[in-house]
C-alpha cells in the first residue's frame, strides 16, 4: 500500500493541486560574460521534491542561490512562493530555508546565540526559545549549544546550520548537498528534519545520483556550462541516463 502511494505520487505530480512553489522560465545567469545558467525552466509544486543533478560547473549552486534570492537572474522569469524575483524578493525572504556550502554561522558566537540571532532576524519572538531548544535536541546538539562555533567540528556545525535553515519553518527548502560533512549517523539524524514533507517543497542539489533520484518527484539535470539536459518527472530519467550527463554525452 505505501509502495502504491509513492508510485502514484511520481506519476501525477504535474496535476498536483498544491500551489506552485517554484516556477522558472528562460532563466539565464551570467558572471561577467560567462553564462552559468542557460535558459533553465522548471516548475515545482508544494510538497514535492526536485533533485538537481549535474557535474561540477553545471550551475547547480548558482541556481539555488538565484532561488534563494541571493543572486539576481540576468534574464528570465523566476517566481518563488508566488513572488516574482527580484522585484518582490523580500516577500519570499523569510519563507525560504537555505542550506548551502557555508553554514552561515558566526564563529565567535555559540550555536544557541547564532540561532537566537537568526530568530531575531526572522522576527520570531515569543516561541523562539522553545523552537531553538527543540531543534537543538533533535540534532543532538543541546549539550554543546553554548560552545563557540569555532570550536565545533564540521559535522556539528552542519547540524547547527540545519537548525538555522529550519528555524522559521520555511515553506521552501533549498538544500545544497546537505549530507556533506555528516557521518551516516548524523545524516540519519537530520534526514527527518530536511526530508520530504507535504508541508514544504524541496530543491535538493546532490552528487549522489541514486539517492537523488529516489528522493525526488521531479529532476532537473544540468550539463557543464549550465544548459538543461533533462527537466521532468523523476520516473522519466534512468540512473544510467543521469550518469551519461555527468560524462558529458548528450
Amino acid at each position: 500500500m505505501p509502495e502504491l502511494a509513492s508510485v502514484q505520487r511520481k506519476i501525477e505530480p504535474t496535476t498536483s493541486t498544491a500551489p506552485l512553489a517554484v516556477s522558472v522560465r528562460g532563466l539565464w545567469r551570467e558572471f561577467g560574460e560567462v553564462p552559468a545558467l542557460r535558459d533553465v525552466a522548471l516548475t515545482l509544486h508544494g510538497g514535492e521534491t526536485l533533485s538537481v543533478l549535474g557535474p561540477n560547473g553545471a550551475g547547480k549552486t548558482t541556481l539555488l542561490r538565484v532561488l534563494a534570492s541571493l543572486l539576481r537572474p540576468t534574464a528570465g522569469e523566476v517566481s518563488v512562493l508566488g513572488c516574482p524575483l527580484p522585484r518582490e524578493s523580500w516577500r519570499a525572504r523569510g519563507r525560504i530555508g537555505y542550506l548551502g556550502h557555508e553554514p552561515l554561522l558566526y564563529r565567535d558566537l555559540s550555536g544557541a546565540e547564532n540561532l537566537r540571532f537568526a530568530a531575531q532576524l526572522h522576527g520570531l519572538q515569543g516561541d523562539a526559545t522553545g523552537r531553538i531548544a527543540e531543534l537543538l535536541d533533535l540534532v543532538r546538539m543541546s549539550r554543546r549549544a553554548d560552545e563557540l562555533v569555532r570550536n565545533l567540528s564540521a559535522g556539528m556545525v552542519q547540524r547547527l546550520a540545519v537548525c538555522r535553515a529550519l528555524l522559521h519553518q520555511p515553506e521552501l527548502l533549498l538544500l545544497d548537498e546537505p549530507r556533506s560533512h555528516l557521518d551516516p549517523e548524523a545524516a540519519a539524524l537530520v534526514e527527518p528534519l530536511i526530508g520530504p514533507s507535504p508541508e514544504r517543497a524541496r530543491v535538493l542539489v546532490t552528487h549522489e545520483i541514486d539517492a537523488g533520484l529516489a528522493d525526488a518527484d521531479r529532476v532537473l539535470a544540468l550539463r557543464a556550462g549550465g544548459a538543461v539536459a533533462y527537466e521532468g518527472l523523476a520516473s522519466g530519467l534512468s540512473a544510467g541516463d543521469a550518469r551519461a550527463i555527468y560524462g558529458g554525452a548528450p
Partner: peptide
C-alpha cells in the same frame, strides 16, 4: 567571511 551577508539577506531585513 562567515556568511553574515547571506544570512541577513535570507531574512526579511
Amino acid at each position: 567571511d562567515e556568511g553574515g551577508f547571506d544570512a541577513i539577506r535570507l531574512a526579511p531585513v
